[in-house]
Design a protein around this nucleic acid. Structure first.
Lengths: 342, 342
DNA sequence: CTGAAAGCGCTAACAA
DNA sequence: TTGTTAGCGCTTTCAG
């Protein structure tokens, strides 16, 4: 059987208490005893059981990461960052894919509770607020990334979605685009709403006609986005640009424009959102609003860890500013340049 | 404080043993008592502690997933599949990103050992065999995906890499390509070696000159692949195709060809490997060798779970057959068609 | 500086 | 059908 603390203690001729102390690097152990015990630990290949220590010590050194889908590059990159900084702090992370399914959301929360994780990073919406509140009553620290839940006073790391949308619009406007398609997925989601609002705000400021913006929602896949853009372009070929609320949809937008006989960026400009690695794989490379994903992961995780370790800080909301990465899917609108000539 | 099994027992006027039995759905409990206890559990909001039960019951209901990098789409998709089937079987999964770093590999293994995970899915190479063997002596079941370690007798799920390479070559050959660039990352890796061997075998069978295949190795990024292809094409513009050992490299290949003034697929064909979602995002959509990632994840995980549950099956190696997905980056070689005319 | 002893919350015989 | 009891492997006062 695997050696336990007893085996080590026995072989070292000391009590388990002493062994425990050296394992945990407590001060009050003599140098010689410590050395001896360390040697024996090595010899017998002893690895302290974290589950036993969790039962006593109250810490599992595990955090839960709840997200819609790890196969989505945004969340994959986030997960990587969370795992890295968790690992650096001695925490392992268990992933929970909810698919935005309300049932799974509460199911995983329950589960994490039973597993007595030390904290959770919530990167998904919660449809069932009651369940979340119930969970939080268990005194397990929770932090939010990328999703805001205003009714909750927990630390949150967000990107300024409004600003992102605004900047996207500004860029398009500077390029003389006056008509745009808005490719959106799920409008339930506050992030998407804000991106959209920001975009519209800039267009309004530019005194653009309201129905120059055509919102297409419910787009779940690249293909759907492609189809939607193609259809829209066939209906109104004077639309010269699109703003997609994710890079996936943006790529769909490029494809759709192409299918409608428009080249990107010569005839049609598109800007995305996220700046996951796919933006740079895209052809042409995608102009997109860049979220500092790695940083977001680092900050939330560190915040969570601090909270777990009892550094009582008031909960705060950190809003990171997105950046526009101008690549090759946006260009000056040639159609509009001709207009003044008429 | 959170309610424990004692609180429930007390309130129900029974012993903790009885409560334990209803929690675990053991047979020998009276219907009325069971109902009553269940009700009380609900009332007090009792959630059994998995760490306590792990200490006794010997099961943590957790498995480790060790991979190079979850941000890589192949592993992200694999992870999703593993998590899904783990979840379906009552296991949560903790992710470990090794970056192919030997130190991290053993570090995580140690850690998983201390956490007393019930099993691990190993999807990364292990540089330190000794550490692996030591780990396995702890009697924690291990299964392998996507990486073969012939010296180990553990269940393994692989894709037939040789065949994949062979099929890729065949496809190119049918399209009259006689010269090919081989874009490879890390030749240490048995998968890549086999893909390469398969490819070469087909070219040999076609009695192609050996140096019609130019192997470019050490390619770690899309950019590097692009540069390599561009350089190669500038040196020898009669090369009409490339086989990339991953989709990432394939996309780099497309970019590089483009930079060298060759259009894909008109002037230059490329086939990739993996068929992650990026293949379909690519422009043109990538012809690639498709690995059944989801299935691989399901099979390994199920195998692991069965092993954990003690279904003693002899360890087996399951080799899945890859498929070629012909999309738009391969076309008939026009250069070679002219040759016979000369 | 070191050890004895009391749990942590639960499971699993074994009695009753 | 239900309860008693002995741990699981470790941490933590509190004495010595």
């Amino acid at each position: 059987m695997k050696p336990t603390i007893y085996d080590v203690a026995e072989r070292a001729g000391v009590s388990i208490a002493t062994v425990s102390k050296v394992i945990n690097d407590k001060a009050d152990v003599g140098q010689k005893t410590k050395k001896r015990i360390l040697k024996i630990i090595e010899e017998v290949g002893y690895h302290p059981s974290m589950v036993a220590s969790a039962l006593t010590g109250k810490h599992t050194h595990t955090i839960g990461l709840v997200i819609p889908d790890i196969a989505n590059p945004f969340f994959a990159e986030l997960a990587r960052s969370v795992e890295d900084t968790g690992h650096a702090n001695g925490y392992s992370v268990v992933i929970c894919n909810t698919d935005n399914d309300p049932e799974k959301e509460v199911q995983y929360l329950w589960w994490l509770n039973q597993k007595k994780v030390d904290g959770v990073v919530l990167g998904t919406g919660m449809h069932n607020m009651k369940a979340l509140k119930e969970f939080m009553e268990q005194n397990i620290p929770v932090v939010l990334v990328s999703r805001d839940i205003p009714t909750l006073s927990v630390s949150t790391v967000l990107v300024d979605d409004f600003r992102g949308g605004y900047v996207a619009a500004q860029h398009l406007l500077e390029l003389n685009h006056r008509k745009a398609l808005l490719l959106v997925g799920d409008l339930d989601n506050s992030s998407e709403q804000n991106r959209l609002k920001g975009f519209c705000a800039a267009f309004e400021e530019a005194e653009t006609d309201k129905d120059n913006i055509k919102i297409i929602e419910g787009l779940m896949t690249t293909q759907q986005a492609a189809q939607a853009v193609k259809d829209a372009l066939e209906k109104d070929s004077t639309v010269s640009s699109a703003f997609a609320l994710t890079d996936f949809l943006a790529i769909g937008g490029i494809q759709g424009a192409r299918e409608a006989g428009k080249n990107v960026p010569e005839h049609f400009s598109v800007v995305g959102f996220d700046d996951t690695f796919i933006a740079v794989l895209s052809y042409p490379p995608l102009t997109t609003i860049s979220q500092p994903i790695v940083e977001m992961g680092e900050i939330v995780t560190q915040t969570l860890v601090d909270q777990i370790k009892g550094k009582k800080q008031s909960s705060r909301t950190i809003i990171l500013t997105p950046d526009i990465k101008i690549r090759k899917t946006t260009a000056n609108n040639t159609m509009s340049m001709q207009e003044p000539a008429q």
